[in-house]
């Protein structure tokens, strides 16, 4: 698996979910209570992102922050991925005194995020928890697609050949909804939580449970389409290209 792409998807699609996590998960919220700092994740010649923690909230940004409190550097994407997997340490360019956040608080956020994202508590979870898991997964896939069209050379031809247009996806009857589209050459957008008027294609997931199974990889999209649990209308060329991107994101995210 391409290490840079893996790092890019984490930084651009997974890390932003921490914003939602601390709003929903008490353990995660407790971990950042009283914290106020900005952490920069900076891969040499690669992607960068930062998290700002303040007033019990997390804000994510792509690129470099003007004045981070803790500036973590990684000589390669592999080093970053190893740190995320708990197997390595970053270089510290700035903020040695704030390192405690990285060693004590950040792992809690990561652990709780994975708990929800992977549905590890699904057997005893509430309907709200299940919905939250689907919402996180939905957001991750949307963000992941934006990452792969910009950072994955293998997806370049798909991005180029994708017709301009928007796919609107929603979970029935009133679950999460979002969209992904190509606005113009090399310009892609993803939205979450908003209905789309006159989309070029529509993907309807029959229930929250189907959405959860798809996100967890318990069922394949092609099977859900065949059984009618997922219904697609509209521009098939657009849908087919987006399916390739989704498949790529899923494989990279594991």
């Amino acid at each position: 698996m391409d290490a840079t792409l893996q790092a890019s998807i984490f930084l651009k699609a997974i890390m932003p979910l921490m914003e939602n996590l601390v709003e929903y998960d008490q353990e995660a919220a407790a971990a950042i209570e009283g914290e106020k700092l900005t952490v920069q994740f900076d891969i040499k010649d690669g992607p960068a992102a930062y998290l700002t923690v303040e007033n019990g909230a997390v804000r994510h940004g792509i690129g470099k922050h003007a004045k981070p409190d803790l500036w973590l550097t990684f000589p390669t994407a592999d080093h970053f991925n190893n740190m995320i997997a708990g197997k390595g340490k970053p270089g510290i360019r700035k903020g040695f005194t704030r390192l405690g956040f990285l060693t004590k608080k950040f792992p809690v956020l990561g652990k709780r995020l994975m708990y929800h994202l992977r549905g590890e508590g699904k057997d005893d979870s509430s309907p709200e928890a299940r919905r939250f898991q689907v919402e996180l997964g939905f957001r991750a896939l949307l963000g992941g697609m934006v990452a792969v069209v910009s950072d994955d050379p293998k997806m370049k031809s798909i991005a180029e050949s994708m017709p301009v247009g928007t796919l609107y996806a929603r979970v029935l009857p009133d679950g999460p909804q979002g969209s992904f589209g190509k606005v113009a050459d090399n310009t892609f957008t993803a939205t979450f939580g908003e209905a789309v008027e006159n989309p070029n294609a529509v993907m309807e997931l029959g229930s929250l449970e189907i959405a959860r199974q798809l996100i967890n990889g318990e069922t394949l999209p092609v099977i859900a389409i065949g059984t009618g649990d997922v219904v697609i209308h509209g521009s098939i060329p657009l849908v087919e290209k987006i399916n390739v991107l989704l498949g790529r994101v899923s494989r990279v995210m594991g």
């Binding site: 394949l220 092609v222 065949g226 059984t227 009618g228 219904v231 697609i232």
Partner: peptide
């Protein structure tokens, strides 16, 4: 789907026609 990748592959897959 239990023994064949995607159940039906290529141009004959359900999604390319009209599922259901």
């Amino acid at each position: 789907t239990k023994v064949i990748p995607e159940g039906i592959y290529g141009t004959r897959k359900p999604g390319f026609v009209l599922p259901k």
